[in-house]
Nucleic acid binder design. Structure first.
Lengths: 261, 261
DNA sequence: TCTCAAAGTTCCATTATCTGGAACTGAATT
DNA sequence: AATTCAGTTCCAGATAATGGAACTTTGAGA
């Protein structure tokens, strides 16, 4: 994806993180040779690097010697997630919004040109949160992303948009800066934005922006669901609720962070 | 805690991970000086190390320059968690067990002398899983831990027990190897084990072991709840259900992993 | 069972990176 | 204006990473 500004590969840590990414984000355990083929390190070097990652618990090996993600990552991440101020403060509002609408509610923050999902509250049927938490999606084709983008000033927005290359995830995905910017202009006027199957076919959402007083947090809340249930009318009905939730979170955020900032 | 064999601090990665641990596991954002005081690195060195961690997205700084956990950890961890074979395969069984008992269900794996919680299914009221996922607890005073220990052969068990030092978390915590070993012997006979407020006052559980054909996975499932609700009789009622769930997971595990292993 | 090729591991002189003391900047306090 | 404290930068020296090559193990085929 564009924009996100990949970290450099130089420096001991950089190289190790590149490896860690490769293994952790792969869908399967990787054998030494698989990793060797996809990295440009000599065998000896690669082997030692992997050994170090395993020693630190960031990777593990199964009994066939294949590498997979270690449990230490889970430990570190879950602790910091549970302590995340912004998420904690937003959570009751997300929960209320979920109860009001009966649909899935997402909280996402903007990082460069991507949105990262910080929390998710689903209805009673499925408790399978986590699945999407931590995931990154392009901002330009998601409700939460577009909402967050709408809080940027024109200059920052233009600079960010310039770095995008538009990928047609569905037939409704924005494919040009002009089209995206028009959408964002409308979003600013309304205070909320829609995603009519722009990222995933069959999935719609309505989202509203959250921004702290000093622009330190750029985020969005959304109500998401299947297109057959979240019709245009239904989305319009939800819009005020989503805006209210976003506003409430913004107020809490300023109350909590404002005095100090 | 004993046993877990903390990783060495030598080597570039080791030092950085020690830092990352300190910041990620702290309850608040830490200022440079706080970190300096709690590490034995010279100022210049520490500063560069933190800079590297920030460059890689493992840490972030807030606008006051304090360090907190970066979002990249969440990204890496959530991906690997969602893809974790064992967790995925166990999940439907955990969910069923939760429905059958109405209590919180845990899945934990043994790592050295500690249990790490891989999944948690709670009743309708609270969707606040995640809070405990990834957390480590001593094996000798938790239901899941003792269940997992009961699958070890005598030699391995003895060696592991030898490394323990017993900490009295409550008045019911095992305080000697003999007492623990007796409990585990009983667990082997019954096929399940209890935790009567051994780790946390007011919390009881009943747990059963999971072990794959080739001993690669040592784990346990438990049903956990407040002592006033989970009385001795109630725990006995749950025991067969917990054993059944553990057995079902074990079967699935062998079916999935057996052919290859 | 033996042989060969591929996969994985270890070694060590070389080299790049990290180290850490000290000097520097900038902001807050007196 | 002077002083203190927090944070940052610098560079010669110490340390750890590198990578080519040799070595061991595994497994497939004859």
């Amino acid at each position: 994806m564009a924009g996100a500004g990949r970290t450099r590969d130089t420096g001991t840590l950089g190289k190790l993180m590149t490896l860690l990414d490769m293994v952790a984000l792969s869908d399967d355990a990787m054998r030494f040779t698989d990793i060797l083929a996809r990295s440009d390190q000599p065998r000896g070097t690669l082997h030692r690097q992997l050994t170090h990652l395993v020693e630190e618990g960031l990777l593990e090996t199964d009994r066939e010697g294949r590498y997979l993600t270690g449990i230490r990552l889970l430990h570190l991440a879950s602790h910091s997630w549970a302590r995340n101020q912004f998420r904690n403060l937003a959570e009751p509002h997300l929960r209320r919004l979920q109860e009001q609408t009966g649909e899935t509610v997402h909280l996402g923050v903007l990082r460069g040109a991507e949105v990262i999902y910080l929390d998710k509250v689903e209805g009673r049927q499925s408790v399978r949160m986590y699945s999407q938490i931590g995931n990154a999606s392009p901002a330009y084709c998601t409700g939460v992303g577009k909402a967050a983008l709408s809080t940027l000033d024109d200059l920052s927005l233009q600079r960010l948009v310039d770095t995008l290359d538009f990928h047609p995830f569905t037939e409704h995905t924005h494919l040009s800066a002009a089209s995206l910017l028009a959408d964002i202009a409308a979003t600013r006027l309304r205070g909320h934005t829609f995603d009519h199957e722009e990222h995933e076919r069959g999935i719609c959402c309505v989202a509203a922006p959250i921004r702290s007083a000093d622009h330190d947090v750029l985020a969005g809340v959304s109500v998401t669901g299947p297109a057959y249930r979240l019709t245009a009318e239904r989305l319009e009905e939800c819009a005020p609720l989503v805006r209210a939730a976003a506003a409430a979170i913004t107020v809490d955020l300023r109350a909590r962070l404002g005095p100090r900032g």
